[in-house]
């Protein structure tokens, strides 16, 4: 893959093909069939310059984690309304850990009762965006919280696969 040069006739409105993009999986676990909220967030992230993988409703934890691995996303946003979060979230986190994918930012949004928030945070799930959260805040949160080792320019080789982390600093 060759470098983009300043002489290329790329219009200003277009983005250099090699630009590092934040990839986010917006997933809708649980059995409720409404995904309007998830779609609004997906569009907001897109408008924030991110690449959003949207997988539709009724996703099982296994489906979500498999998609996150195959797509090598930087972040997962779980949108949930059904109230099944305390059953679903730990499964997702376990599966991610099982794959060694601990460098992915996992966030939740939707209807999450206040009393569950400490437990959700203890699982390592961030954000916890309630119904009133503005989409701009969510976009800003994702941008600020993707683990810095993932945002190294370019992506680091998989540390968890045993590649020395010095590679990432060399490339920076």
């Amino acid at each position: 893959m060759a470098e983009q040069t300043s002489l290329d006739a790329t219009p200003q409105t277009q983005v250099a093909p090699t630009a590092r993009k934040i990839r986010v999986l917006v997933a809708k676990p649980g059995l409720d069939g409404h995904d309007r909220g998830a779609k609004v967030i997906a569009r907001a992230l897109r408008d924030g310059g991110m690449e959003v993988i949207y997988t539709g409703i009724r996703q099982t934890p296994a489906m979500i984690v498999e998609a996150a691995i195959q797509e090598d996303v930087d972040a997962i946003l779980l949108s949930i309304l059904s109230g099944a979060h305390m059953a679903i979230f730990p499964k997702i986190m376990d599966l991610l850990r099982g794959q060694g994918a601990t460098d992915i930012l996992v966030m939740a949004g939707g209807i999450l009762p206040d009393e569950d928030i400490p437990a959700i945070e203890a699982m390592g799930i961030k954000g916890n965006f309630g119904p009133g959260t503005s989409t701009q805040d969510i976009v800003a949160y994702v941008r600020a919280n993707v683990p810095p080792e993932r945002m190294a320019q370019p992506l680091p080789p998989l540390q968890t696969l045993g590649t020395p982390p010095t590679d990432a600093t060399e490339q920076a």
Partner: peptide
């Protein structure tokens, strides 16, 4: 925006 919604997986 340089962003994209990738929805084919649905």
């Amino acid at each position: 925006t340089g962003g994209a919604i990738l929805g084919d997986r649905i």
